[in-house]
Design a protein around this nucleic acid. Structure first.
Lengths: 226, 226
DNA sequence: GTTGATTTGAGACAAGTGACTTACTAAGTC
DNA sequence: GACTTAGTAAGTCACTTGTCTCAAATCAAC
C-alpha cells in the first residue's frame, strides 16, 4: 500500500484518531533532538527506535521523505514564534528607531526557546538545516517567508533608506547567519552546562540586537552599484 | 594488516613514493568537493569512486577515519592562507585603526579563494564542518588556533579596550559565523552562476569588513558583568 | 634485473538502511 | 454484530557502507 502511505504523508493532518498522533509527536521530538545533537545524517531507523517504536518504517509511514520530517519539525515551532512576533509587531510605533524592529526579529525566537527550558534543541537543529546545501531552501521558505517576517523586514528596510539594495541583501544574509548560529551556540552551551556570555535568553537577545544594530548602521566603504 | 593502515594514517606524511601522492591528492580534492556540494554524509566509497579508484577502501587506506580526511582537507588550504596573512601582518602599523586588522583576518581567505577560481569549494566545506556538532572542534583547532590568527585576534582586542571580555568573546563567535557563511554563500552563488552582491572577492572582503567594523563598534546596551 | 615495500584492483563479508509486506490490534461506521 | 480504517509489530528484500583479504602492479634502491 505504498500509495496509501504517500497520500497520508502529503496530506496535512491525516490521522483523525488521536492514537497515532501521540507517537507521531514523539517521533518529531526525537528527530529534532537527534538531528541537533548528531547532525542530519541520522537514519530514520535510529529515530524510530529512539522514539520507542518497533516498526522499521514508522518514520516513513507517518512522514514521507526526510524533507517532510524536517518540515514537520519546523512546523512544530513556527506557530508559537509567529504568534509572539505578531503580538510584538502590534506594540511597534512608526518612529525611526531601528532597535525595536530588530528586537521583534530576535526576541520571539529567544522567548520561544526560553519557554522550552533546557530540553530545547530547535536552535541547533535550525543551524544544521540552514547550512545543509540540500535542505536549506526548505527552511528559508517555511521560516523566513512568513507574514510577520515580511512585515518586520519591511520595517527594517524603511529605517535604512540610505542603504544600497545590494548591501541590504548582503547584510540580511549576514544577519541570518549571526542570529541562527548565535542562538545555536548558546543553546549548546546551556545543554552542556558550559558558561555563557549572557545569563538569560532575554539578555542574549539584547546582545544579538546590539550587534545587529552595529551591523546595519555600519557605513559601506564602496558602493557596489555604480 | 589493519595495524599497518592505522600507523600510516596517524603518521603525518607516510608516503615517500610520489606515486600514491597523486591519488591521495585527488581523493582530498574530490572529498572537499562532495562535502561542499552534498554535505558531510557522503560515504568513503562515493569519494573513492568519484576519485576514479576501484578499491573500496582507498579512502580508509590513505586516511584513517573521516576526521583525518577532514583534517587533510583543511591542511591543504591552511599553509597558503597562513602565508598570505603573515605577509599582511608585516604591513600593519601600530595605529589605533581597527579596519586593517579585520582586513588581515578576511582578505587572506578571499585571496586564497580567488586564486582557486570557480573550482573553489573550501568556503562551503568550512561552513559545513564548522556547523557539524561532532567535527566542529577539529576545525576550530586547526584553522582558528594558528599563529597568525592569534596575532590578529590580539591586535583586534587591543583596539577595543572598552569592550567587556564576555562581549568580546560573544562577538568573536558572531564574527566567525558571519565570515564563514558569507564566504560560503558567495562561493555557492559563484558556482551556480547566480548574481552576487559584490563583483569580486576583493570587494566581498570589503563588504564583510564593513559589517564587522559595525559589529565590533556597536555599543553594548547591557553590561553582562556586574 | 632483482628484491622488497608500497600502492592499487577486485572481491568477500557483516552490519545497517530504506522500502515493502503481512498480520494483529484498536477504534470508529454502518 | 459485521465491516472498514488507522496504527503498530515483525519481518523480508535489495542495496549501501565500512572493513578485511589477497593478488597484481608499481616503484625505489641495490
Amino acid at each position: 500500500m505504498g500509495a496509501t502511505i504517500s497520500s497520508k504523508a502529503t496530506s496535512a493532518q491525516p490521522s483523525r484518531s488521536a492514537a497515532g498522533e501521540e507517537t507521531r509527536e514523539r517521533i518529531v521530538e526525537t528527530a529534532e533532538r537527534l538531528f541537533a545533537e548528531q547532525g542530519l545524517s541520522v537514519s530514520n531507523r535510529q529515530i524510530g527506535e529512539a522514539a520507542g517504536q518497533s516498526n522499521n518504517s514508522v518514520v516513513g509511514y507517518h512522514f514521507g521523505a526526510k524533507a517532510d520530517l524536517i518540515a514537520a519539525i519546523v512546523g512544530r515551532h513556527t506557530p508559537d514564534i509567529e504568534a509572539r512576533r505578531a503580538a510584538m509587531i502590534e506594540t511597534l510605533s512608526d518612529g525611526p528607531r531601528l532597535r525595536p524592529w530588530l528586537l521583534a526579529l530576535v526576541k520571539p525566537v529567544t522567548d520561544h526557546l526560553s519557554s522550552l527550558g533546557r530540553k530545547s534543541f530547535y536552535a541547533r537543529f535550525l543551524a544544521q538545516v540552514t547550512t545543509d546545501p540540500t535542505l536549506r531552501q526548505l527552511v528559508v521558505d517555511r521560516w523566513l517567508a512568513t507574514e510577520t517576517m515580511r512585515v518586520v523586514t519591511e520595517g527594517v528596510t524603511e529605517r535604512l533608506p540610505s542603504l544600497a539594495p545590494e548591501v541590504f541583501a548582503e547584510r540580511s544574509d549576514m544577519m541570518r547567519y549571526l542570529i541562527v548560529h548565535a542562538l545555536a551556540e548558546r543553546e549548546s552551551s546551556l545543554h552542556a552546562r558550559r558558561p555563557t556570555a549572557r545569563a538569560s535568553w532575554d539578555e542574549a537577545a539584547d546582545g544579538i540586537v546590539d550587534a545587529l544594530l552595529g551591523l546595519w548602521r555600519a557605513p559601506s566603504s564602496t558602493r557596489p552599484e555604480g
